[in-house]
Amino acid sequence: MLTVEKLESGYGESAVLRGVTLQVRPGQVVCLLGRNGTGKSTFVKSVMGVLKARGGTVSYGGRDLTRKAPGERARSGIGYVPQGREIFGQLSVRENILIGLEAARGKRRGDDIPPAAVERFPVLPTMYGRRGGDLSGGQQQQLAFARVLAAEPELLLLDEPCEGIQPSIVDDIRDVIRSIKSDGRTAILLVEQSLEFVRSVADYVYILEKGAIAWQGELEALDDETVRRYLTV
């Protein structure tokens, strides 16, 4: 479904990714691991199109997206929850979710929030009128999920969804990711620090080091030796 080949990308003069090849199949949960600064977020941003690729290709569902704008990638079915959530602070919670509907391909435009988007977050409908910027970090993270789920994406890019939020909500978010996985309709590319959580959801694992894939394999193959070598700080 998502096929990334020899992707090169970076900021300004510095190259961060040096030829990353990765695949996500429909319904699969793929985890991208690596120490800080190895290029995990850069990779996700390049897949989404926020950063322009300098080499290689990104294709999705057989279509080459390498030169397409982020908006078009979103409309073709890729949903993105960025690191730091990036909620529209001045828009109401309701409006934030409605913006998420922009990516819905024709079918679900308009001013109605699809119930499926918020069914996992019962707290959100109670604060539709509040500004996104006034929510707590954990609530914003839930909003970021509801916003992206509104368009029913077939692939979710999650960039450290549990970073920097209170522990009680971390568990909620993890339950949400598990429930998306068990629905089986949405594939997930997950960047995550917690190995314990990765072990509970991942199907396939890639490990980045110095902007290249250093290790890949099924979850079962991820042994302690590999973890020590590539992930222990």
């Binding site: 704008a69 982020p70 908006g71 993105y80 922009e102 990516a103 992206v148 368009a151």
Partner: peptide
Amino acid sequence: DMAACLGIST
């Protein structure tokens, strides 16, 4: 950037 990532044609 985020608006674009959610499908808006900026």
